[in-house]
Design a protein around this nucleic acid. Structure first.
Lengths: 198, 198
DNA sequence: AATAGAAGCGGACCGTGGTCCGTTTAGGCC
DNA sequence: GGCCTAAACGGACCACGGTCCGCTTCTATT
C-alpha cells in the first residue's frame, strides 16, 4: 500500500533534517554575533548568511523573514528572563508576596525591554517573541492580579497593565513626552496600585 | 550689503514655492485615492508619483519617506476627528460631564483607530501623526482626568489610559488574545473607572 | 523685461528584503 | 552499498524604498 512512506507520527512538527538543524544553529549564532558587534540596524540578511557560510535563501527558509530571525535572536535573552521570573530569587521569582512580585516584575520588564529595544522593534509583531512573550507576561500578571484579589476581566486588565511597558508606548513617553525612566516606573506603580485597588 | 536677499522673517517655516505646494497637493490627493482603492499595502511610492504626474524624487522631497506620506494621508481623517472632540456634539464634544466625555472618547478613539489600522501602522512613529495625535489625545485625557479630580502624575496616567487604545496593543489583544472589540471596550471602561477612582 | 540664484524637479541608481527554481544532499528502505 | 524521494540549498532575480545630482523653473529684485 503506497501509504506515505514517512509516516507522520506526531503530526505537526515534521522534524528537521540534520543539516537543516546545523544551519539553523550556525545562522542563529552568526546573527547573534553580528547584532552584538554592529547593532541590529547594520545587520543585513545577506551578511548573516555569509557569516554562517550559507546562501541567502537558507536564511529565509529557516527564519521566514528578517523579523523572524530577529525574534529568534531575541528569544535567547527572553527565555533567560522568563526563567528568572518563574524560578529565580524573590522578589521577581516566587517567594515574595504578590504585590512585591508585581512591582518587581514591572521594573524588571521595563528594564529588559529598554535594553533590547532595537531588537524588539526589529522583531516586529512576528514570530515566537510576540506570541510567546505576550502570553507569558499576560499569564503571569493575570496570576498575580488574581492572588491580589482583583476581580473583573483579568485577561484584559492584565493587558492594560502591561501596555505601558511595551516599546511603542515607552518610546512615545520618552521621546515625545520627555519623561525620564524613573518617572515612568513611578507612574506604572501608581497604575498598578489603582488597578489592584490598594 | 550682501545680506541674505530673502530675509528670514519668521525664521522656521521657509515658505513653500507655488509649484511645490501644487505638487504636494497633487501627491496627497493621488495617495489618498490610491490608498482608498487599493489598500495601503498595495500603494508604492512610484505609483503615487506616477498618479500625481511627478517624479519619484519629488514625493520624497515633499514627504520625506513612505511613513511621512502615510502620516500626511492619515492627518486628513485625524483632524476631522480631533475637531469633533474639540467642538462636536456631546458626549464626545464639550457639554457632557467629564466622565461621560471620557467614555465617549475611549469608544470613539477605539473605533477610529481600528478603522484606520493599516494606515496608522504604515505611518509608523514618524510624522505629524505621531507627535500630533499623541499630544492631542494625551492633553485631552489629561484635561478630563483633571476635571474628574484625579490626582497624581496626570501626564503619565493619561498615557497609561491611552496605551490600550494604541494599535500594537489592540492587535495583541484581538489576534493573540482573541478578545472581541466589545470586551476591549468594556475593559477600557473598567480601567478608566479604576484610574479615576470611581 | 532681464537677471540671478535658490528651490524644485526627475529619473537613473543603489541596497536590501524576499522569491524562485534548477541542483544537491540526507537518510529511510531494500 | 545503491536507490529514491522529499527536503534543503544557493544565488540569480525582482520589487520597492530611498538617494543623488545635473538640469529646469520659480520669483524677488532692479
Amino acid at each position: 500500500m503506497p501509504e506515505p512512506l514517512l509516516l507522520p507520527v506526531a503530526d505537526q512538527p515534521p522534524v528537521e533534517r540534520a543539516d537543516a538543524a546545523r544551519n539553523r544553529e550556525a545562522l542563529l549564532c552568526a546573527a547573534r554575533r553580528l547584532v552584538e558587534e554592529r547593532g541590529v540596524g547594520c545587520v543585513t540578511m545577506e551578511a548573516v548568511a555569509a557569516a554562517a557560510g550559507v546562501g541567502k535563501g537558507t536564511v529565509f527558509r529557516r527564519f521566514e523573514s528578517r523579523e523572524g530571525l530577529m525574534a529568534a535572536v531575541l528569544d535567547f535573552s527572553e527565555s533567560a528572563w522568563q526563567a528568572s521570573v518563574i524560578s529565580g530569587p524573590p522578589p521577581l521569582g516566587p517567594g515574595a508576596d504578590p504585590w512585591e512580585r508585581l512591582i518587581a516584575f514591572g521594573r524588571s520588564r521595563l528594564e529588559t525591554t529598554l535594553v533590547h529595544a532595537d531588537l524588539i522593534r526589529a522583531a516586529g509583531a512576528t514570530g515566537s517573541r510576540a506570541v510567546g512573550a505576550y502570553s507569558f507576561t499576560a499569564m503571569h500578571v493575570q496570576h498575580l492580579l488574581g492572588q491580589l484579589g482583583v476581580d473583573g476581566d483579568l485577561p484584559v486588565l492584565a493587558t492594560a497593565l502591561l501596555a505601558p511597558l511595551e516599546i511603542p508606548i515607552l518610546e512615545q513617553q520618552m521621546s515625545l513626552g520627555g519623561f525620564p525612566v524613573e518617572r515612568l516606573m513611578a507612574g506604572w506603580e501608581d497604575l498598578a496600585r489603582r488597578i489592584t485597588g490598594r
